[in-house]
């Protein structure tokens, strides 16, 4: 595993990155003398901005609200992409409804996002596509740590590996999943790599020491 220190490491300078995104050819006016290194002050923490999503008005959104009422918290669209925020328990009925009634027959992806500071720590995101409508919709649920959402394998078989990967990376167990084991990491791996509080170097070193008996050298 590559070392995942923040590039720039100890200098604590915010990585400017993106120089590459500049110009086609490198314009190289030699910098005038003595450009002192930028004072290494991280940008002041901004108040947490929110996603500027707009409500999603469509037949489908209304239909869903009618069918599920309270269980649908929000139907929004951002950058032309629609998403639904649902109550954790109702995700599977919604997927089922979308599949059977609205032809969303292709589950593109199941994934999660970790927000350690929030009470409901994880977003679980189901991305759906409908071949006949040529439309995508995302169904999101917010769940606290330890909550076991129901598996979607009964609705879409493809959820099998995708949910296993979510479990592997985030430690979200799906209730009723036929084979809830790690998929990419070794079975005896400790911790869940894509959680924000996962210490990359420590975990890596420990595993290398235990299993290979050498220093990882990172």
């Amino acid at each position: 595993m590559a070392d995942d220190q923040k590039p720039g490491g100890s200098e604590a300078a915010p990585p400017p990155g993106s120089e590459a995104a500049g110009q086609p050819a490198k314009p190289a006016p030699p910098k005038p003398a003595a450009a002192p290194p930028k004072p290494a002050a991280p940008p002041p923490p901004k108040p947490p901005a929110i996603m500027l999503a707009t409500p999603w008005e469509s037949d489908l959104a209304r239909e869903l609200k009618e069918a599920f009422g309270e269980a649908i918290g929000e139907t929004s669209t951002y950058l032309g992409q629609n998403f639904i925020v649902a109550k954790p328990g109702s995700a599977i009925p919604i997927l089922e409804y979308l599949k059977l009634e609205s032809d969303f027959d292709y589950l593109v992806d199941v994934t999660a996002v970790d927000w350690p500071k929030r009470a409901e720590r994880f977003d679980v995101v189901y991305i759906l596509y409908s071949f006949s409508r040529n439309e995508r919709v995302r169904v999101k649920i917010f769940i606290p740590d330890g909550y076991q959402p129901e598996t979607a394998v009964g609705v879409h078989l493809t959820a099998d590996w995708l949910e296993r990967e979510v479990y592997d990376m985030f430690g979200i167990e799906f209730a009723g999943h036929p084979n809830m084991r790690r998929i990419l990491m070794p079975d005896e791996w400790q911790g869940f790599p894509l959680r924000k509080d996962y210490g990359i170097l420590q975990q890596d070193e420990r595993w290398v020491q235990e299993n290979l008996g050498i220093e990882s050298g990172q």
Binding site: G8, P15, G17, E19, A20, K31, A33, P37
Partner: peptide, 26 residues
């Protein structure tokens, strides 16, 4: 010119540039 930009741009952080200030030329 020891500006360190390359080191910051590198995704792998593998370039290390050290420099010292020359008082004569600033």
């Amino acid at each position: 010119i020891s500006c360190n930009l390359c080191a910051l741009a590198c995704p792998e952080a593998l370039i290390v540039v050290t420099s010292e200030r020359n008082e004569a030329t600033k």
